[in-house]
Every structure is written in C-alpha cells, then in structure tokens.
Computed example of a mutant assay.
Amino acid sequence: MNLRQIEFTLAVAEEASFTRAAEKCHTVQSALSHQVARLEDELGVALFERTSRHVRLTAAGEAFVRQAHVAWEAVRRISEEVAAVTGQVQGSLSIGAISALGDIDIVALIAGFHARHPQVDIQLSQSGSEELLAQLRQARLDIALVGLWRGEQIEGLEHLLLTQERLVALLPPTHAWRASEHLTLERLATLPLVDYPRGSSARLQTDKAFDAAGVRHQVRFEVNHLDLIVQFVSRGLAAGLVPQSVATRLQGVTPIAVQDAPERVLYAVWARSPSPAASAFITSLQAGSH
C-alpha cells in the first residue's frame, strides 16, 4: 500500500466516480483504476461496487476510508509541523460552518486570518451541524462552527463557546400577530411551521422546547437552509424559529420575541490534535470571543 493508492481511493470515494477522481488527482483514469485495483488485490477485498450507473463504497471500503482519512491527514501535516517549529504557519485549513452564524462574519474571519497567514490555503464548506461534526471525526475538516441545543454534549472533540442566544419567531409580514410584543410556544404551535430536518441539532433546539412546554407542534416543511425558512415564511406558508441575531438581518419577515423560547449555543469545534494552521485559527477565535 502506498500514499498514491490512498489518495486515489479517497478521491473515488468522495467523487463517486473514477472519471472525476482522475480529474481531481490530475492523472489519467486508467492509471487511477489500476492503482485502486492493486490496492484491492493487496487487501483481498473489493472497496467499491462498480456498475454502469454508479460507483459506491462496499462495507470494507467504508472501513478503509475512515482510517485512510486519518492516515492521509497525518501525512499532510508532516511538512506543516516542521515549518511550525521555525515559526511559519503554512499548509491547508479546512473550515466547515452552518449557514446561520448570527453576528459571526465568517468572511471577515477568514480574510483577517489570511492577512496574517498568507501561506495557508483556506477552504470553506457549509453544512448542518451533524454532518460537520462527522467530518471532523473523519479528519475531513480542521475546524467547524456549529449550532447545538443547550445541554448537548460534544464527545471526543475540543470546543470553544462562541455565543448563546434565544430563538425568535418569524411571521409573515402581513400576519395578524405581527404587532405582538411576544408570543408563547403554545400560541406559535397553532401555526404551520417550517424547520430543519428531524434529528438535526437545529431541529432539536425547537423540538425540546415544545416538549418542555407540553405543546405539540406541526412542522409542515422540513428544509436544510436558512434561506428556505425565510422564503416559506415570507410567502405566508408557515412560521419559523431562528436565532435573534440572525432574525435582525432578514428581509420580508417579521421577528417576534417568544416568551419561553429555546436557546442555541454556537461553538467552534476541532480535533484534539489540531494542525498548526488550525491552532492559529483557534487562537484568532479565542481572541475575538472575549
């Protein structure tokens, strides 16, 4: 087994295509396929199911990829750790973030970090908190900004509390309750709601709050992005719940305080042995969190 084979196999797993993986690795498909086949022969198992329509990991392939990500990350960090000894911060930094960060300006954070450490290659991706935490544990991200419900535990990872705040209701701009000073969850539960998918951390924030109030609520629309919540509310199809700092910047909806509102806690989360670039980014976050 060699590093090239690990790189090629990870690329096929991520792209679900030998053709796209070859393009990503800047090689010809025949060479990539040959190296993956040699690795499978060495391991004595098939890592991929190949048909004319799809390429996907076998159970053995999933096990290989979990460990391969860790190994590939360790190799990637060798030169970065050596450079760090001489005071240089370089290499790559992969950041994951949820879409609703409130007062945190992720672009300004990245721009400031880039100005201080121009030799670091920075990447950003957006997803839900659960997916970002999973990618951290798979060594596919260096750091993630996630929103969790109050009391949720973060196992096996380091974290920094950035902010915590109550959620507020979003109502259509022409709704009869738009002039109310506040609502209760019991009253809000009489409306159709738009929310994040069941089981997600964002949804847990609201589900647990309604449960604690002893109120049944009806989520008519399950979406995975803040923009869709705003669109459903602004068109009068549903009400929603979002962090207060997020609501103040939204257009076409009316934010209303909720008396027994749930709370969201925003964290920066990273692995217990961060890369030099990740350590430098964490230091920037810590300086800004005071």
Rank of each mutant, 00 (worst) to 15 (best):
C25M: 15
A16T: 11
G147K: 05
E222F: 02
S79V: 11
A144L: 09
R166T: 13
V194F: 01
S92T: 14
I256T: 00
A179V: 07
L241H: 02
V242I: 15
T283I: 09
I154S: 05
A74H: 06
E158V: 06
H26A: 11
A268T: 05
P255L: 13
I154N: 08
F281P: 02
L167D: 02
D41G: 07
T9Y: 01
D227F: 13
G44W: 11
R249C: 11
L109T: 06
A46G: 08
H159N: 14
E186H: 12
E81M: 04
A212I: 07
S273Q: 15
A83Y: 12
E158H: 09
F64T: 00
T163A: 15
T283L: 13
V168T: 08
G214Q: 04
Q205L: 10
L228G: 01
I78R: 13
T86V: 08
L148G: 03
A134P: 01
E152V: 10
E186M: 11
E7L: 07
A134S: 12
S33Y: 11
C25P: 03
V45C: 04
I122G: 03
E81V: 06
I282E: 03
Q286M: 11
H117L: 10
L10V: 04
L183G: 00
G288R: 11
A261T: 12
I104L: 12
G112C: 13
